[in-house]
């Protein structure tokens, strides 16, 4: 019992550190990729290939002058970025990061919390995610920040619907809300993306909107709203907002990989004949590769597509994605019924 608790604590802290480090280096990779897409080199001065750039950026943010608008709501102003960061880090608990590890004959699952409603947990966290942005935007007492916050909330509410509807098909197919169970059913190459391409596409688009990434980065649209909800933020508070975006990218990549790309499964999984722990490590690396792939897609899209206009965004969400998602649910239901 006590070893289980220690193991869970270790795993949780490992995942926390992992998401922070990945988010840190995503900032570098984002700038590198942006550079390559634009025929530039990207940052390459701080350390070899710019590897120390995230540290330099972090240090800069820490030592920058902290500024708080005189008319800001002091408590909420600080609560906003903290909440955003907190919520961004919560989701990783429900994701199965790999198959079980066996140490001294005791089985340790590579998942912090195997709740039987894993998907709903992810959605609950997602729906709270908007609070950090809204609170921060409102507390700054700035019209641009408020507009950014309002945009963020309406955008996130709109896309949450289509996202949940696209996930319902997965739940219908697997008959379970547990992430672990869903991954287990995608064993080998039975990936959900092959059965639910439309659902995957809808989920991908919604994931872009939920993480406030381009082309749906209207809450921080700098051409219209200066900096959006973080206009009045500086120093590490701003850093938290920017950082949370990259953590969200990482986690949403993990969720997509888990739900659609078979999680840690890969074709030929049974033929390798590895010992359980090596196998767990290999599987974890496979999952990590899939997440990295999604991270690259995020950046690729960001540096390719121009930003949507606000009415286009709402139109896409309500008039295209939601009907498509409902259609997908109906089709899946009919197919499941016919196969029974």
């Amino acid at each position: 019992m006590i070893t289980q608790i220690i193991y869970k604590a270790l795993l949780a802290s490992f995942i926390l550190v992992l998401s922070l480090v990945v988010a840190m280096y995503s900032t570098l990779i984002e700038r590198k990729v942006a550079g390559w897409f634009q025929d530039r080199h990207g940052p390459n001065r701080a350390g070899p290939w710019g590897l120390l750039q995230p540290l330099a950026d972090g240090l800069k943010l820490f030592f920058k002058e902290e500024f708080m608008p005189a008319s800001a709501d002091k408590f909420l102003y600080i609560l906003g970025p903290s909440l955003t960061m907190f919520v961004a880090l919560l989701t990783s608990a429900a994701i199965p990061w790999g198959p079980d590890i066996v140490i001294n004959g005791v089985v340790y699952p590579m998942q912090v919390a195997d709740v039987n409603i894993g998907i709903l947990y992810v959605f609950a966290i997602l729906s709270i995610g908007v609070y950090g942005i809204m609170i921060g935007g409102w507390a700054s007492n700035n019209k641009y920040a408020l507009l950014g916050a309002v945009r963020a909330s309406s955008q996130m509410i709109s896309y949450e619907l289509a996202m949940s509807l696209s996930i319902i098909t997965i739940v219908m197919m697997s008959g379970s809300l547990s992430m672990r169970e869903i991954v287990a059913q995608q064993h080998g190459f039975h990936w959900n993306i092959l059965y639910q391409p439309l659902g995957f596409l809808i989920f991908l688009v919604c994931a872009f909107a939920e993480t406030n990434r381009a082309p749906f980065d209207l809450p921080e649209c700098e051409t219209e709203l200066v900096g959006g909800y973080h206009t009045e933020y500086s120093s590490m508070k701003l850093g938290f907002y920017l950082f949370a975006e990259y953590i969200n990218m990482f986690i949403s990549g993990a969720v997509m990989a888990t739900l659609f790309l078979g999680g840690y499964h890969f074709p030929g999984i049974d033929k390798l004949g590895l010992s359980p722990n090596v196998f767990a490590f290999v599987s974890f690396m496979v999952l990590f590769t899939k997440i990295t792939f999604f991270g690259f897609i995020y950046m690729w899209i960001r540096w390719t597509l121009p930003r949507f206009r606000y009415d286009q965004l709402m139109k896409l969400g309500w008039k295209s994605l939601i009907p498509l998602a409902i259609l997908n649910v109906v089709i899946t239901g009919v197919v499941i019924l016919l196969n029974q």
């Binding site: 609950a124 709270i128 809204m134 309002v150 949450e160």
Partner: peptide, 18 residues
């Protein structure tokens, strides 16, 4: 619990706040 959070905290209260 989770549905409570999704529906009340995640949707209705966000609209209120809005």
């Amino acid at each position: 619990a989770v549905v409570h959070v999704i529906v009340y905290a995640g949707a209705i209260m966000v609209l209120f706040l809005f």
